[in-house]
Design a protein around this nucleic acid. Structure first.
Lengths: 330, 330
DNA sequence: ATCATTTACGTAAACGTTTACGTAGATTCG
DNA sequence: CGAATCTACGTAAACGTTTACGTAAATGAT
């Protein structure tokens, strides 16, 4: 049924060792033999069995990638960078959708281990201690992307979230805003939650501006979350002329609620997002945001998972000024 | 170094066949033996080798998925449906980013064949004859999603694009619009291009409305493309009160250009998109669109690739009315 | 008590590939 | 010309797992 190396060897009248040498571009055969074998391969439609190769110790050239939501713009861009780089290096990518809470991660780790993947890229947000322990026990390279280990000592690729949030907040401050609302993620989240909040606080403190707790809310980074938070601000009668939302989707949600409430952006309210996904470009008005180089981060994560190297790869964020920020009217 | 079934057998004082039976939940062992073996497995941290299983004829439980752009909202949602359903069935998904023109597909097919994937889901837009031939030669199940075969006879999962476009156009007609602009994909594209155009034409013909060629343009489904096309319409002084763009991203691009030109949506211009991706929800105003059930299509494609069944799975599209359509002013 | 059936094992072979090592022939060098 | 080296092979074993088949012991039926 299946064509194997034995069939090729038989058809070309050589040994299976010779076929293997030819297929793998090793030395030790004549050009005449090579022609015979390649001809037989083509006629039979032989395709080497990667499973057998893996069994005799060859690399599987497969990595696993754990992402919280493959259909999000954020994760999609990471995945694109990972996959493009993997392809360039002859690797394939098993994608695992862990769900927003990462609850499905453990099952995936078992499966990836059985398939003997060469490494795992973990971009799944919150890591539990169980997950960290299990990742360590696998004894294969693990790299975290856009996050860093809550447990264990895995290398990671990320921006400086505190500094990025600091710069975003300072952008609003430089435009003269002093009453700035903030929508963050959960403070328990050590990457997207707390450091972005701290960056915001630090920028406000540097200008000796008081922190008004009624201008602080925490969401889940989704479009709907941003819409809800902004709606709550408005219903609570909160007074602010600018808002920093720590994801583009939340920021676009804010734009939505503002649109519905007749709040003009940027005339009445300046808004800054975080990530620079396609959502920021597609927003009306086009969203000013602090950019994480998601695609490049994905590439770097792949490079790191197949080679040893730095434990901390910090990528540069940068401000992308579009049309949602205006100086405060005096 | 690596813990194998032999190590477990030795530690538990049983044969490897017994360990295999226990690991695979077959019969033929006492409860005492089972305890001993499970204890040994746990202590040794044994994880079965899926490569070896595949070699002795067990299913690999792996499929390949070819998508044109994994970071697009469209493809992301398909992938999410595929991956969720695969996970539910104990399968893993190798994701392949073929690029917008599908130029990288052939290399992926070789790789997937070597890895002995059990099936391939092809959502990669245009298929060349070479690709179709190669897919056929693989002799494994292939299912196309959101597209259908240009070559070969592969089962597919899609909506009726002509009818969906017909309904979208009719929605505008029912709101009294008679001058309707159209932005489609390339007519050479047998799914996203020609049938959507035909649906538009059919709806116009049913109302005995003339087709004004100056109101027809073709883009590449991207946000930028929609923006450009709308900008061209405006610069050309085209006169229309409604527009149907055959992807959400192009429709949002249209909203952008309208925003920049001071054209009010939906007061001055009604707009309808196609897909119902997150982009339509995030648009300002929220975009009315004809929805493809992308997630469910992904699920169905997965189900179909691991089981035999219908050759044509037609999913229902439906209109999602948001806020970009208004009756024409008389 | 005897025979038939069932249960709980273990052995050996298969799966497709890679490669260390051995052999024969050809070529080169002293 | 003989010895050393190189080239072009082929053989056999390894890799980790599954399972068909055989055997011994236990159980159930007559």
């Amino acid at each position: 049924m299946a064509i194997t190396i034995k069939d090729v060897a038989k058809k070309a009248n050589v040994s299976i060792a010779t076929v293997s040498r030819i297929v793998n571009n090793q030395s030790g055969y004549s050009s005449g033999t090579k022609e015979k074998v390649l001809k037989a391969i083509k006629e039979l439609g032989y395709s080497p069995n990667a499973l057998a190769r893996g069994l005799v110790g060859q690399p599987t050239r497969t990595i696993g990638v754990l992402l919280p939501n493959v259909s999000s713009l954020f994760a999609g861009k990471l995945l694109e960078g990972i996959e493009d780089e993997a392809k360039e290096n002859g690797y394939s990518v098993v994608v695992c959708n862990t769900g927003t809470q990462g609850l499905r991660a453990m099952g995936y780790l078992d499966m990836l281990n059985e398939k003997r993947v060469e490494g795992i890229i973990y971009g799944s947000g919150d890591m539990t201690k169980d997950q960290g322990d299990k990742l360590s026990a696998l004894n294969i390279p693990v790299v975290m992307v856009a996050t860093k280990p809550a447990y264990g000592h895995f290398p990671y690729v990320k921006v400086n979230d505190k500094k990025a949030a600091f710069d975003a907040t300072r952008c609003l401050l430089d435009h003269g805003h002093t009453r700035i609302a903030f929508i963050g993620g959960q403070l328990e989240d050590p990457i997207a939650g707390r450091p972005r909040y701290e960056g915001f606080i630090q920028a406000m403190n540097e200008r000796d501006l008081p922190i008004d707790e009624s201008l602080i809310k925490f969401g889940d980074f989704s479009f709907n979350s941003g819409k809800e938070m902004m709606t709550e601000f408005v219903e609570e009668g909160a007074s602010f002329t600018a808002l920093f939302a720590t994801s583009d989707e939340m920021a676009v949600g804010v734009l939505h609620a503002a649109y519905e409430k007749g709040i003009r952006v940027p005339d009445d309210l300046s808004v800054i997002g975080y990530d620079n996904t396609l959502a920021s470009e597609m927003a009306i008005p086009p969203l000013t945001t602090v950019a994480q180089p998601l695609y490049e981060m994905g590439q770097k994560a792949f490079q790191r998972v197949i080679k040893t190297g730095a434990t901390q790869i910090e990528m540069k964020h940068h401000m992308v000024e579009r049309e949602t920020v205006k100086s405060r009217r005096t």
